[in-house]
């Protein structure tokens, strides 16, 4: 009893020490940034306070970041949903059927290895400079990770469970609903999280490289006008969005499948 309480107390002390360390390191980081930026007096490197000022202006005062973010996120939401709708069934099929898997395998390898960015002009020739191109690009970035993880999850389902269900007279539909899909859920969620990160990357890349719109265009505009504080602030806003979205996904993942762990990594 006493030992447990002591252990809990020391764990709490440990957590406090960890946060104290994190705060000290952050303060150090800010101080070094601020001082070196001031000493350099480079037009292209803002001080930390300038960046924070820019962020506050963009997000709260002028709100200039919201409309571009909304435009960018349209492609993200549509593309990500499409990726999920495509990626999970493909992964399920490849995981359950050896033949489908062997037919798909070289293409999965190809899509994983092929660089997407140089193909953006092809996409634009095919679909124009509008939303459709950006959506397809997000899909190209994201769906393969969902497929690969889903496949790995299905493959990891213990085959003796399936055999047992079959010997008790379960049909294919029941095997899917009762055994295969529940068994694959943790890996599917890992794939959804990794795919989300890739989708955000795709959203940013297409806007920076070819279709100047959304937050990508905002970044290029600020960079072109040498407003370094706003460039850094926009980058920071994008990082915040990515971290918040993926972390939220991770929280859901832990709720749904607390025993989960990554099967394949992006």
């Amino acid at each position: 009893m006493k030992a447990a309480a002591a252990a809990r107390k020391s764990r709490r002390e440990e957590a406090i020490a960890a946060w104290r360390l994190r705060i000290v390191v952050f303060a150090l980081f800010v101080a070094v940034w601020e001082l070196s930026a001031r000493r350099m007096e480079n037009l292209l490197i803002p001080t930390f306070t300038e960046m924070v000022g820019g962020f506050v202006r963009l997000v709260f005062v002028t709100g200039r970041v919201w409309e571009p973010l909304l435009i960018s996120n349209q492609a993200l939401v549509l593309g990500y949903l499409l990726s999920v709708v495509m990626g999970i069934p493909l992964g399920l099929a490849a995981g359950r059927s050896r033949w489908i898997n062997r037919l798909m395998n070289p293409y999965i390898g190809l899509v994983l290895a092929v660089p997407v960015a140089p193909l953006i002009p092809i996409l634009i020739t095919a679909l124009g400079l509008g939303l459709a191109s950006r959506v397809v690009l997000v899909v190209l970035f994201a769906f393969i990770f969902i497929t690969v993880n889903t496949r790995a999850g299905v493959r990891n389902v213990d085959p003796s469970l399936i055999e047992m269900a079959q010997s008790f007279g379960a049909n294919e539909g029941q095997i899917w609903r009762k055994i295969v899909i529940p068994g694959a859920v943790p890996a599917i969620f890992a794939g959804l999280r990794i795919g989300l990160g890739r989708a955000i990357a795709g959203m940013v890349i297409v806007e920076l490289l070819l279709v100047a719109t959304g937050v990508g265009r905002l970044l290029l505009e600020f960079a072109g006008r040498l407003q370094a504080d706003l460039v850094f602030a926009t980058v920071f806003a994008i990082i915040v969005e990515a971290v918040v979205l993926v972390t939220a996904m991770q929280v859901v993942e832990r709720k749904v499948a607390p025993w989960a762990h990554d099967v394949a990594l992006g």
Partner: peptide, 21 residues
């Protein structure tokens, strides 16, 4: 915290910064 944030964020957003600097 920093490593985690950098791992999750789209690396390409830093391109305009590096290009400017």
């Amino acid at each position: 915290v920093y490593v985690y944030a950098m791992l999750l964020s789209p690396s390409m957003v830093f391109a305009p910064i590096f290009f400017a600097i």
